[in-house]
Each structure stands twice: as structure tokens, then as C-alpha cells.
Design a protein around this nucleic acid. Structure first.
Lengths: 363, 363
DNA sequence: TTGTAGGCGTTATCAG
DNA sequence: CTGATAACGCCTACAA
């Protein structure tokens, strides 16, 4: 492909002048400038990002490392990050860790040698991000951690109010009159799973409701995890009358388990999720869930990064975004034989489900 | 960060020797080799992909351009491509076009200057990929087109058997006794949408069933498109008894429309989709759909690319993957009053007439 | 088997 | 305001 030298020759100027025109690094007189632009146009010239990055010690890439593209929550974050990045001239280099911290390390190490302007990470299980991020900082590259944080993370972060959302959801379930609640949490060492559990427990404690440890089951954040743990809960002697799922994928799995076990939702058992994925309104029954602003988490992360690149050296930012309870049909009152034991609770307003046109595109 | 010169100094060898050790470009005697490796280890040295790419005229990146990460079909393809790429030492640089061909051009142009080893593209609407790909080929970079092809595409491609899948699905619906079918296609200029429509029409023709043009509605490949076109079909005088949705997102939208209109599925109307997304089994009712191997499309595309990089200069490959009909609960027999009006499927040659309107006398 | 040096395409510095 | 020229970090003939 054409390079600068060729453009310079075509325009009859020196290589340096071409660079000056392209980067505005020096004022170039109009006739020359015009000749250069014409040559660029004619040749369809694009400067080599590789050479430019090598020279400038920085490329226009933003690295983004996520556990798994196929979990619908993450693409929303990616989308948010990409929109802001692209609008500011940055490109996203996306890597899957598959929730494998060794794969994460490989990606982080290699990504670094591409000299990205910044890095957005949703850490994998057992992530060693804190150590890795130190290398990036040494190279002057900002790192933002999203959704879940390594234990000792002190850098910039963007998360949802996981505890608050879980607290609100649990209270809502309690108000329907449930007293035997269970939770299927995500992996306990993930801060988001932890915080949701904390919110759940806090709501229970405030109402002086005690549940045995067997009512809190840990699962991976996916359909299979939800399916198997829900089956387990259904088989318990004191079967819970309501389940709080650590995320919607778990809830979907639970729904599958309900169906297979012939247990009706919400008549026999209530269910509430977390994430409010697009498809929560499509399930049978439509799933009540805590809405978490994935897209905004992505935009916020990208914005922090861009601010850092532009010279913001202020203290670490910890952005916590609000959640919102979306009430649909998966939570009802407890079955009659259970209900007799408690007073009837409050009710909540319902959400109609018109399809929203999202900012996404068809395929 | 550390560079080769520093490693060389640490190991007490020349820069070239370090390179030779790292790339195996020359046999290096053990003692030296060992000293080099130790220095590399100690410094946590990683070669600059930027410099290496500039020098070798090729990086270990594979560019991947897709319309939208948030449409669940695409991440599956991405995932397949990434798994194969990563296993072979390549990294994926992912770009969203948002189905905007001008954004696609920007990405394609810039990506090129990163000298990727290959390019995987799911073209946007009105893509100008053919012209763009020519530039890549000139630079010796292979391009594989996936899922849908620009009109004049002659290069490597990986697609599903869209026509066959649609034909099979339509036949299945016909066998249930339906004669008044409708289709909500995706954008007509996309080959996958086109081919699915062709399969649909072919099945109808073979059974000598004619449907008016108003029974084929074009929508964007998303929930909103499905919702609005389904609403339109439901309001028609000769309401179809079954709808074939161009993809699952459209089907999901249709399901929403059914729910809102108080039309039961499959009792009042049947529905079948295309893609067999993970969530098709979760909807109410579980959606019958044509399964399309997104993950395999990704792996196949990445494999072609890697073969090309390794020197395969054979003629263009056109891989067409099989689809499979997944039968769930969304297709039933037509409503009773419709069924009585037609004879056996074999001689259902008459054009469907508008249904009798109950309780009103026609004028 | 090891070391040296030129150059990949840019940018930035510094004379003219 | 314009044009040489020296890096950036690496690879690879080619020389030793």
C-alpha cells in the first residue's frame, strides 16, 4: 500500500511536509497543502497505525477483555464502550478470557505490546488483574475495571449497585408474603455475586427472617448452573417458595428446571433475576428482574479512559450505577398452604412490556 | 517496557542473538540460549507486536467486522472464530459496523493499516465489501465473508443453507395443515434473507399454494421489526394461520405482538423462527426454529483464514453448513374454522379466501 | 554459531 | 514555512 514517501513524491513535496499536513503539526501553505491532500485522496492513502504507534508510543486502540461474548450482558457493555471509543477515534480490541485467568494473562500481556491507549477489563474468575494493571500503569496506560472487581482493586472502576438492587428485589419478594426464600448466587469470589448476596441477606435480616445455609446455593453465572441448583432446591424438604437468581442466565436455567419438574411459576414458586436481559420479557412467565445498565457501564468506562488519555490524573474514580426493579410475572404470592402462615404484603406496580426499539441494528 | 536491546545486555549477548533465540531463526548454543531465556523471564519481556508487525509486514491479528455484538447470533460466530484464532496464536480485533456501511468502510480502512493476517466479515446492509476486499488482497491478506454475502462476492465464504432450512421449515408448517402462511423476511437485499424467502416460496409452490404479496412482509432483523409486522399481519382480513419469521429476533417480536393482541400461539396462530438462538427454548411457547450453526460458522471462517496464511492459494471456498429443524411448541394445527375449509393437503390448490367474520353479515 | 547493520513507515526535532 | 534526519523496536540478510 501507499506510504508517505510515495505521497510526498506525488505531491512534489518532502515527506515531512506530508506528515505536517496530516497531523497539523505545522502550518503548511495552502497550495502545498492542497497538493498533498489531493495525492492522499488519489492514492487512497491511510497512515500505518503500526508505524505511527511505534513512533508515538501509543496506538488508537483500547483493549477490552471480557469473560465471554456469548453471555448477553457483556455485549451490552462492549457496545457502550465501543460507541464512545469509536466516536473519539479509538478502536476496540476485544478479547475473551473464557473466565480463565491464565488466558486473561496471555491476553493482557500481549495486548500491552500493542501499546493501547487504555484498557477496559471485566475480570475473569480469580483474576490477577491488579498485578497486570501495574505493568500497564508503569507504561502510562489507564485501566478501568468493570462490573466486578478483584479483591484488592483500587483503580478506576464502574459497577452497578449490586447490593442495593438485590436488597430491593428481596424486599419486593418479601412483601408478596414469602418467608422461605432461597438464593442461587454466582461464584462467591466475584464481587458482584458477593454484593448481591449481601443485599439479599440484609433484607432478610431486617425482617428477622432466618434461612438455613442450604437455601443459598452457589452456581456459575449461566443457564446450566441455574438449572442444576434449582433442581436441587426443588427437591428439598422445605422447598423454598421463592428463588432469587444471581443473574438472569441462572434464572433462565431455573425456569427450565421448573418446567421439567412440573412446578408452575409463579403459582408454585416465585423467581426473580438480576440483569434484566432483553429476553427476560420473552420467557414464560416473563421474568421479574433487577435492571442493570450494561450499556451505560460501557460508556462510563470508555469515558473515564478517554479522560485519562487526555490528561486527567485525578484520584481513582469509582462509579456506581443505579439499578431498577423491573416487575413482570414471575413473582406471585406464596402457595396457599404457605400463605396461611404470614400476613399479606404490599403490592407493586406492574410493568407493561412493549418492545423497546434499542439502539441496535438488525442482521 | 523492556526491549530487545536490554535483554541482550542483560544476557551479555548481541541483540541479534536474542531475536534468534526468540524466533528460532538460527540455532543458538545452549548456554547462550539459556542466559537469554533467563533474562527474558526476569524482565517479563514481551516482544513489541507493533515493531514486529511493522518489520514482518503482518501482525498476529485477525480483524473481525460484524454488524452488532448485541444481536445474540453474532457473538456465537465471534466465539467460534476466536477459539480457533487464539489456539493458533492469532488475536481477534472486533469491530461493530452497526449495520452502517460507511462505518464499515472506516473500520475496514483502518484495520488494514494494522496489517492483520486476515479478515472475517459479516457484511453490513449495502456493504461495499467487494471493493474493500480488493485492497486487502492486494496486500496479500485473505478475507472471508460470513453469513451473508454482498451481491458480487466471489471470495471465500461461509454461510448456512438458508434456502434449504427455510424450505424444510415451511414444509413442516404445511404438513400441519396450514394453507394461509405469511413470512416476515429480513431486509431483502441481504442474501440470507433472500435465500430464506426463496426456500419459503419454493415449498409453497410445490404444494400449489398461492399467497398474495401482502403475506410477505419485510422487516429489519430485530424484535421491533417482528413486532410491528406481526401486528400488521394480525390485523389483516385474511389473517394468516402461521407465520415464518426470517430470524428468531423477528419471531420474538411477533410473540410480543401476539401477546399484546391477545392471540394465542399456537392455538390461534403458529410461528416458526430461524437461528435457534439459545433463548428459543425459553419463550412462551418454546419457539420452533431452524437451527443454524453460528459457532461452526466462526470456526470454519477462522480455519480458512489460517490455511490461507499458511500458504493455501487454492480457489475460493464456499462452505455451506447444514441447518436443522428444531421442533418445539410454537407450531400447531390451524384453528378449527380454518381447517374445515380445506381438503387434504394434496389438493389444497385454491387461493386462500378471507375468513368468515363471525357475528356480522358481510355486505 | 554469533554479531552487525539496514530498514519497515511514522513522527518529531531542528536547520534552513 | 519547509525539508532533512534520527529514532521507535524488531527482523533478517550477511558478514565474521
Amino acid at each position: 500500500m501507499a506510504n508517505m514517501k510515495q505521497i510526498a513524491k506525488m505531491a512534489g513535496v518532502s515527506l515531512g511536509t506530508v506528515s505536517h499536513v496530516l497531523n497539523g503539526s505545522a502550518a503548511v501553505r495552502d497550495p502545498l497543502r492542497k497538493r498533498v491532500m489531493e495525492a492522499v485522496e488519489a492514492a487512497g492513502y491511510q497512515p500505518s497505525q503500526l508505524a505511527r504507534g511505534l513512533r508515538r508510543d501509543k496506538t488508537n486502540m483500547i483493549g477490552m477483555v471480557i469473560p465471554d461474548v456469548t453471555n448477553p450482558f457483556f455485549p451490552a457493555v462492549v457496545r457502550g464502550a465501543e460507541d464512545i471509543a469509536f466516536a473519539n477515534g479509538y478502536r476496540l480490541m476485544l478479547c475473551n478470557t473464557d473466565n480463565d485467568h491464565s488466558k486473561e494473562i496471555v491476553h493482557l500481556n500481549e495486548l500491552r505490546t500493542y501499546l493501547p491507549s487504555g484498557l477496559i477489563v471485566i475480570p475473569s474468575n480469580f483474576s490477577d488483574l491488579t498485578a497486570q494493571a501495574a505493568f500497564y500503569r508503569k507504561a502510562g496506560t489507564a485501566v478501568v475495571c468493570v462490573d466486578r472487581l478483584p479483591r484488592d482493586w483500587t483503580g478506576d472502576s464502574v459497577t452497578a449497585d449490586n447490593e442495593g438492587g438485590a436488597y430491593e428485589a428481596t424486599n419486593y419478594v418479601l412483601r408478596q408474603g414469602h418467608t422461605r426464600l432461597a438464593m442461587i448466587t454466582g461464584p462467591r469470589h466475584l464481587t458482584n455475586a458477593q454484593n448481591r448476596l449481601t443485599g439479599f441477606k440484609r433484607a432478610l435480616q431486617e425482617k428477622h427472617i432466618h434461612i438455613g445455609p442450604e437455601y443459598v446455593q452457589e452456581a456459575s453465572f449461566d443457564k446450566h448452573g441455574g438449572y442444576s441448583k434449582a433442581l436441587l432446591l426443588l427437591r428439598m424438604i422445605g422447598r423454598p417458595t421463592a428463588i432469587f437468581a444471581g443473574n438472569d442466565m441462572i434464572a433462565f436455567g431455573a425456569l427450565l428446571a421448573f418446567r421439567e419438574a412440573g412446578v408452575r411459576c409463579p403459582e408454585d414458586i416465585s423467581l426473580i433475576g438480576f440483569d434484566n436481559l432483553d429476553l427476560a420479557e420473552m420467557t414464560s412467565p416473563p421474568l421479574s428482574s433487577v435492571s442493570q445498565p450494561g450499556y451505560q457501564m460501557g460508556t462510563a468506562a470508555a469515558q473515564i479512559l478517554i479522560d485519562r488519555v487526555r490528561g486527567d490524573h485525578g484520584p481513582a474514580k469509582h462509579i456506581v450505577l443505579e439499578t431498577a426493579l423491573k416487575i413482570r410475572d414471575s413473582v406471585g404470592v406464596p402457595p396457599a398452604e404457605e400463605r396461611s402462615r404470614v400476613g399479606s404484603g404490599a403490592r407493586a406496580t406492574r410493568v407493561a412490556a412493549p418492545p423497546r426499539r434499542r439502539g441496535t441494528s438488525p442482521r
